[in-house]
Protein backbone atom coordinates (compact mmCIF):
# COMPACT_ATOMS: atom_id res chain seq x y z
CA UNK A 1 0.00 0.00 0.00
CA UNK A 2 1.23 3.43 -0.95
CA UNK A 3 0.24 6.75 0.50
CA UNK A 4 0.35 10.02 -1.41
CA UNK A 5 0.44 13.42 0.23
CA UNK A 6 -0.64 16.16 -2.16
CA UNK A 7 -0.07 19.84 -1.36
CA UNK A 8 -2.08 22.38 -3.35
CA UNK A 9 -1.28 26.10 -3.13
CA UNK A 10 -2.29 29.24 -4.97
CA UNK A 11 0.28 30.17 -7.60
CA UNK A 12 2.81 32.91 -6.92
CA UNK A 13 1.35 36.32 -7.62
CA UNK A 14 -2.24 35.31 -6.91
CA UNK A 15 -3.70 37.22 -4.02
CA UNK A 16 -4.34 35.04 -0.97
CA UNK A 17 -6.55 37.10 1.39
CA UNK A 18 -6.71 34.24 3.91
CA UNK A 19 -2.94 34.08 4.11
CA UNK A 20 -2.75 37.86 4.48
CA UNK A 21 -5.19 37.83 7.43
CA UNK A 22 -3.28 35.01 9.14
CA UNK A 23 -0.05 36.95 8.64
CA UNK A 24 -1.61 39.99 10.30
CA UNK A 25 -2.94 37.90 13.19
CA UNK A 26 0.49 36.36 13.80
CA UNK A 27 2.01 39.83 13.73
CA UNK A 28 -0.49 41.08 16.32
CA UNK A 29 0.44 38.10 18.52
CA UNK A 30 3.98 39.44 18.55
CA UNK A 31 5.61 37.19 15.92
CA UNK A 32 7.31 40.04 14.12
CA UNK A 33 9.59 37.91 11.95
CA UNK A 34 6.80 36.28 9.93
CA UNK A 35 6.85 37.23 6.25
CA UNK A 36 4.44 36.22 3.52
CA UNK A 37 1.84 33.61 4.61
CA UNK A 38 0.12 31.39 2.04
CA UNK A 39 -2.76 29.00 2.76
CA UNK A 40 -3.14 25.78 0.79
CA UNK A 41 -4.72 22.33 0.91
CA UNK A 42 -3.28 19.05 2.05
CA UNK A 43 -4.84 15.93 0.55
CA UNK A 44 -3.86 12.43 1.66
CA UNK A 45 -4.59 9.44 -0.58
CA UNK A 46 -4.20 5.71 -0.03
CA UNK A 47 -3.32 3.87 -3.21
CA UNK A 48 -3.36 0.23 -4.16
CA UNK A 49 -0.57 -0.93 -6.46
CA UNK A 50 3.08 -1.89 -6.40
CA UNK A 51 4.63 -0.07 -9.36
CA UNK A 52 5.84 3.19 -7.87
CA UNK A 53 6.57 4.96 -11.15
CA UNK A 54 3.09 4.12 -12.42
CA UNK A 55 1.53 5.40 -9.20
CA UNK A 56 3.66 8.52 -9.44
CA UNK A 57 2.24 9.21 -12.86
CA UNK A 58 -1.29 8.55 -11.62
CA UNK A 59 -1.02 10.94 -8.68
CA UNK A 60 0.35 13.61 -11.00
CA UNK A 61 -2.58 13.11 -13.38
CA UNK A 62 -5.16 13.18 -10.57
CA UNK A 63 -3.60 16.32 -9.12
CA UNK A 64 -3.80 18.01 -12.50
CA UNK A 65 -7.32 16.90 -13.43
CA UNK A 66 -9.17 17.29 -10.15
CA UNK A 67 -7.18 18.06 -7.01
CA UNK A 68 -5.88 21.39 -8.32
CA UNK A 69 -7.07 23.99 -10.81
CA UNK A 70 -4.00 24.66 -12.98
CA UNK A 71 -5.23 28.19 -13.79
CA UNK A 72 -4.72 29.40 -10.22
CA UNK A 73 -3.05 26.60 -8.27
CA UNK A 74 0.13 24.58 -8.30
CA UNK A 75 0.79 21.29 -6.53
CA UNK A 76 3.53 19.07 -5.23
CA UNK A 77 3.25 15.59 -3.80
CA UNK A 78 5.12 12.90 -1.93
CA UNK A 79 4.54 9.22 -2.57
CA UNK A 80 5.68 6.64 -0.05
CA UNK A 81 5.13 3.04 1.00
CA UNK A 82 3.03 2.50 4.11
Amino acid sequence: MYKAKVYVTLKEGILDPQGAIIGKALDSLGYKNVGNVRVGKFIQLELEGTDKSKLNKQVDEMSHRLLSNPVIESYTFELGEE
Binding site: I14, Q18, V71, I72
Partner: peptide, 17 residues
Protein backbone atom coordinates in the same frame (compact mmCIF):
# COMPACT_ATOMS: atom_id res chain seq x y z
CA UNK B 1 -18.21 26.47 -16.76
CA UNK B 2 -14.78 27.75 -15.65
CA UNK B 3 -13.77 24.44 -14.08
CA UNK B 4 -14.89 22.52 -17.16
CA UNK B 5 -12.88 24.76 -19.46
CA UNK B 6 -15.90 25.98 -21.44
CA UNK B 7 -14.93 29.47 -20.29
CA UNK B 8 -11.41 30.80 -19.62
CA UNK B 9 -10.09 31.76 -16.17
CA UNK B 10 -10.88 30.66 -12.63
CA UNK B 11 -12.70 31.80 -9.53
CA UNK B 12 -11.01 32.82 -6.29
CA UNK B 13 -12.51 33.55 -2.92
CA UNK B 14 -13.97 37.05 -2.47
CA UNK B 15 -11.27 39.55 -1.56
CA UNK B 16 -13.05 40.45 1.70
CA UNK B 17 -13.42 36.74 2.62
Amino acid sequence: LLESGLLPGAMLRNKGL
